[in-house]
């Protein structure tokens, strides 16, 4: 089992004829993802050659979803067109199937565009958005798996740990940490570090709670906002599995933005210390050094009786 995507998920690529789109569609296919087509306005009718298959390009998401019966769309279009691409995907999935997963990799989307987008999707209970400005989502399989995004697939392996993270390469670090102690992953989700985004920590935790294969979760936050504190409070009451947590940005000075648009301590709020304390208060096992996530995870799994000492 896994959450939201698995080896039978059919995936569309919005922006498939662009440099990034073609590159990542190729990598995703190599990993085992069932890429069934793509969308680029004005290039409908063309085909794109991917490893072992050629897939059709459509002008619109409406056509693409009807023709391919896809479950998932991943967006690699430039920032100024990305919000419209999300809305188009949401409408197409909603009208055709009543459900669908949209993963937006693009970074640099204007905040007010995202407010409109997230508002639009909130009216559609079957539609889920992950991102923007994120590495995507991956469910490693027995042979390959389903990778929807830009993460290096080969660092993952099928297993029992769920991973949720606001940042890209730090997610890979968390994956490598689980691997260093012989643990694989059910599903790993990069939710992105923008101020306004789709799926948050709580949505992911709720799904991992329901997934019988996920035995524990690694949760990676960063400074800014209160999403980590809210998730910790929610988890204390609603999440029964062990969580290992890390928050990046303990050394970041207030008022300075650390790369991600959301990673800024403003008005003294959103510090790493506050988030670590919220984690501890909620019974989340913290690793102050991300190189120790693996160690902490093992001890937590043993403590929970899930592994032999």
């Amino acid at each position: 089992m896994s959450i939201w995507i698995n080896e039978s998920s059919k995936v569309l690529v919005q922006g498939i004829t662009g440099g990034q789109g073609t590159f990542h569609a190729t990598r995703m296919t190599e990993y085992g993802t069932d890429v069934v087509g793509g969308v680029t306005p004005g290039k409908g009718g063309q085909v794109v050659d991917l490893p072992g298959r050629s897939v059709p390009v459509y002008d619109t998401m409406g056509q693409a979803v009807s023709e391919t019966d896809a479950d998932v769309s991943v967006i690699y279009v430039p920032a100024r067109f990305a919000a419209a691409a999300i809305v188009e995907a949401a409408d197409a999935f909603n009208e055709t199937k009543g459900e669908g997963l949209i993963v937006c990799i693009t970074e640099g989307i204007p905040t007010l565009d995202m407010i409109r987008c997230v508002g639009h999707i909130s009216e559609m209970p079957g539609i889920r958005l992950i991102g923007p400005n994120c590495p995507g989502i991956i469910t490693p399989g027995e042979n390959g798996g389903c990778k929807v995004g830009i993460m290096p697939g080969y660092i993952h392996a099928k297993g029992r740990i769920g991973i949720i993270s606001k940042s890209g390469t730090l997610t890979y670090e968390a994956v490598a940490q689980t691997m260093s102690v012989g643990e694989g992953q059910t599903t790993c989700i990069g939710i992105g570090g923008d101020p306004i985004s789709g799926t948050g920590f709580i949505d992911c935790l709720a799904a991992f709670e329901e997934d019988p294969e996920t035995e524990a979760v690694v949760m990676i936050g960063e400074i800014g906002g209160t999403a980590e504190e809210d998730a910790a409070a929610w988890a204390a009451d609603n999440f029964s599995k062990p969580i290992v947590g890390f928050v990046a940005g303990a050394t970041a000075p207030p008022g300075k933005r650390m790369g991600h648009a959301g990673a800024i301590i403003s008005g003294g709020k959103g510090t790493a210390d506050e988030k670590f304390s919220a984690f501890e208060k909620a019974g989340i096992h913290i690793a102050r050094d991300p190189s120790k996530i693996g160690e902490v995870l093992v001890s937590v799994l043993i403590e929970a009786g899930l592994r032999e000492p």
Binding site: A272, R288, P290
Partner: peptide, 30 residues
Amino acid sequence: LVNGAGLAMASMDVIKLYGGEPANFLDIGG
């Protein structure tokens, strides 16, 4: 010198954790 904003912040944090002081945040980007 790090790739990725989260990993760059985490690298600063770990330097501090082991008794050093970071001189900068630097994400070289994708």
